[in-house]
């Protein structure tokens, strides 16, 4: 789910980096000392999650955990996602360095949408968790597919969707299990 360098126009990629830096400032402002260890641990989980490759439909997909990150970190998710995407790009070559901004925005949008869903207290918790996990993948895929389409690359929105729809369902179930686990052992970790 990481866009490599050379796909998106360099000017757009640079602009996306500028937007990402601004988003880090806005979402990371007034972070309390209590939130920092949680951000570090979640970042570490996110960093490793992308290495779990599941062969599917002739290619491979990996868990994103963006929905779960949104649920745990809320608006603090973006600085964590940016840092993780930067390190993944430098250490594993997942996506390009210039594309860190656009990749972070794609994934951060997923986490943010998941957080918004999670805050809808009127809905039952299990539904919010599944939907947050699902949307945490679907939003980045939708954004990435659109960017690919606009850049003239890729095999289109439908192809990407067909592959990631199942991954998003699995992600929804995984998110629900983790939420239930945290609710049992450490309820206050959930925003």
């Amino acid at each position: 789910m990481h866009i490599a360098d050379g796909i998106i126009d360099a000017r757009i990629a640079i602009a996306a980096n500028a937007v990402a830096v601004a988003a880090i400032y806005v979402s990371g402002r007034k972070t309390t000392i209590e939130e920092i260890p949680k951000m570090g641990i979640t970042g570490a989980a996110l960093f490793v999650a992308s290495l779990v490759h599941i062969p599917f439909a002739g290619t491979s997909v990996h868990p994103g955990l963006y929905g779960l990150v949104g649920i745990i970190l809320g608006k603090r998710a973006f600085p964590v996602i940016f840092t993780v995407v930067l390190f993944q790009s430098m250490i594993f070559q997942h996506g390009g360095l210039l594309s860190v901004g656009i990749n972070s925005i794609n994934m951060g949008a997923g986490a943010f949408a998941a957080w918004l869903i999670w805050r809808q207290q009127a809905l039952p918790e299990y539904l919010r968790a599944v939907f947050a996990g699902f949307i945490g993948i679907i939003i980045p895929v939708l954004l990435m597919a659109t960017e690919f389409q606009l850049s003239g690359y890729g095999r289109g929105i439908l192809y990407l969707f067909s592959i990631y729809i199942l991954a998003a369902v699995v992600e929804g179930v995984v998110t629900l299990s983790v939420v239930k686990f945290f609710r049992r052992i450490k309820s206050d970790i959930l925003t």
Binding site: G40, F47, I91
Partner: peptide, 15 residues
């Protein structure tokens, strides 16, 4: 390990 060290190191520095 290197990536995780960086993340935890950074967390420590910010903390």
């Amino acid at each position: 390990i290197f990536g995780l060290s960086l993340i935890f190191g950074l967390t420590g520095i910010i903390y």
